[in-house]
Design a protein around this nucleic acid. Structure first.
Ligand SMILES: [Mn+2]
Ligand SMILES: [Mn+2]
Length: 307
DNA sequence: GCGTAAT
DNA sequence: ATTACGCAACGCTCA
DNA sequence: TGAGCG
């Protein structure tokens, strides 16, 4: 084996070592570890607002897409002292020191570790039991298509409009769609989950042929699973503007509701820069928005029962 | 990919 | 000096 | 009481 090729780079005024920049990460696409690092550094201004202050879980692919991979929650040994962590202690006393990614250089650092996917919590370290948004997670089960997901997403748009809730959709980058609904400060996970479950129940009634809330995979059928249980402490959603370890290096990117009415663009590492230049950060309004999801859940309940 | 433990 | 290993997990649901 | 689930 050739020796590790190491280079020092300066990112946002921070000096750090990067290794093996020529290593193929998406071999079929000719994309390297250097490309991976470049992606995260160049999207940092768009991405960091959704990462800052949150515990982050990595999925690491040190041998590239197709190689053996692993999740990483606990901060790796040898983490630079300028990357902060947040210690979460479980009931049984076990402690996980989650990474916090606060600056471009920290993105470069984790990318160099082979972290293709970044998975932030829905809540922040400061208020870990209070999610900032509810996420309506649409996962096509085996046999369901992306077209099915689109139909369900359009129904979500209608339902949210009906109860006057603002939702911000993004493509997962794989086969699903994630719809973020900002929550008022102090909202609990039980409340965001209840909100999403209620949306799910209305979807189920509207389109039972293609919607399921069934937790057991075997009982889902070829439908779109509304994964409302993702709204829970310690659960994560793959980050906005994050890469996926899939052919073409897709990015989980926001789209407009209007784009979901048709066939939305596929957004990849290669196409994201032009996309950002054209539409900017479609999620930006989400950081200001706040809405009473408890009241909205009650409106949904009445909507469902027809009162 | 890399720090650490085992050989 | 080289090689092997670990790197998440949690509470809820239904059988 | 345990397996399955993201
Ligand atoms: Mn999903
Ligand atoms: Mn899911």
């Amino acid at each position: 084996m050739a020796r590790t090729e190491r280079r020092w780079v300066r990112v946002g005024g921070r000096e750090l070592a990067v290794t093996n920049l020529e290593k193929p990460m998406w071999p079929a696409d000719g994309l390297t570890k250097g490309d991976l690092i470049s992606h995260y550094v160049s999207v940092a201004p768009y991405l960091l607002p959704y990462l800052r202050g949150r515990p982050v879980v990595l999925t690491r692919y040190p041998h590239g897409v197709g190689g053996k991979w692993f999740y990483q929650k606990d901060a790796p040994q040898g983490l630079p002292d300028w990357i902060p962590t947040w210690a979460d202690r479980a009931e049984d006393g076990r402690v996980i020191r989650y990474l916090r990614i606060e600056e471009p250089a920290a993105l470069a650092y984790v990318a160099n570790l082979g972290a293709i996917e970044l998975h932030p919590w829905l809540s922040s370290c400061d208020s870990p039991d209070h999610p900032d948004w509810a996420v309506i997670d649409l996962d096509p089960a085996e046999g369901a298509t992306f077209a099915d997901v689109l139909v369900v997403a359009r129904l979500v748009r209608q339902i949210l409009g009906e109860v006057q809730v603002q939702g911000f959709p993004k493509l997962s980058g794989a086969t699903g769609v994630h719809i973020f609904c900002p929550a008022a400060p102090g909202t609990t996970y039980a409340e965001t989950a209840a909100f999403c479950e209620q949306v799910g129940r209305i979807l189920l009634r509207a389109y039972p042929e293609k919607v399921t809330l069934e937790r057991a995979v075997a009982r889902r059928g070829p439908k779109v699973y509304v994964d409302y249980l993702q709204n829970r402490r310690g659960q994560t959603i793959t980050s906005v503007y994050g890469l996926r370890p899939l052919p073409g290096a897709p990015v989980s990117a926001p789209v407009t509701w209007e784009e979901l009415e048709g066939e939305p663009p596929r957004i990849t590492m290669r196409t994201l820069p032009a996309r950002l230049a054209a539409v900017g950060d479609l999620f930006a309004p989400m950081l200001q928005a706040t809405q009473d999801l408890q009241a909205a859940t009650e409106r949904l309940r009445r909507y469902l029962t027809g009162v």
